[in-house]
């Protein structure tokens, strides 16, 4: 998972250029892990951390949580729960939409309806 570690380091270093609070030590502290552990993750020496830690890292670094989880080879547990509740329906849906372009997928997402006001 070098990709995940590389991405994390690049993002953190970019933020550190303008804000010292994004040093390895301070980010690790805010996320609640040891700096040595974060360092090994960034170098790709260790597998990406747990879902909860990945989500905290996403929040800390301003990354999209689903994208960062995907880079870590994971799918968030709320999405897993959605599929487990109606497995056939959602598995069919995802397979059918696999090749669809983004704009076509956006036509099936649920919009917040605007009314008369």
């Amino acid at each position: 998972m070098t990709h995940f570690g590389d991405h994390l380091r690049q993002r953190r270093e970019a933020l550190r250029k303008t804000d010292r609070r994004y040093s390895l030590r301070q980010v690790a502290q805010r996320v609640g892990i040891e700096p040595a552990y974060l360092s090994k993750i960034e170098r790709g020496d260790l597998q990406p951390p747990s879902e909860a830690t990945t989500l905290r890292l996403a929040g800390e670094l301003g990354e999209d949580p689903d994208v960062l989880l995907a880079m870590a080879g994971k799918v968030s547990s709320d999405l897993q729960a959605i599929i487990r509740k109606r497995p056939k329906l959602f598995a069919d849906l995802l397979r059918q939409l696999k090749q669809a372009p983004d704009h076509a997928i956006l036509t099936v997402v649920r919009e917040v309806r605007d009314g008369d006001w």
Partner: peptide
């Protein structure tokens, strides 16, 4: 929750 809220709320839509 359209069946449980006032009709004026449903008319506005939104969240």
């Amino acid at each position: 929750f359209a069946g449980r809220v006032p009709e004026t709320w449903v008319k506005r839509g939104g969240v």
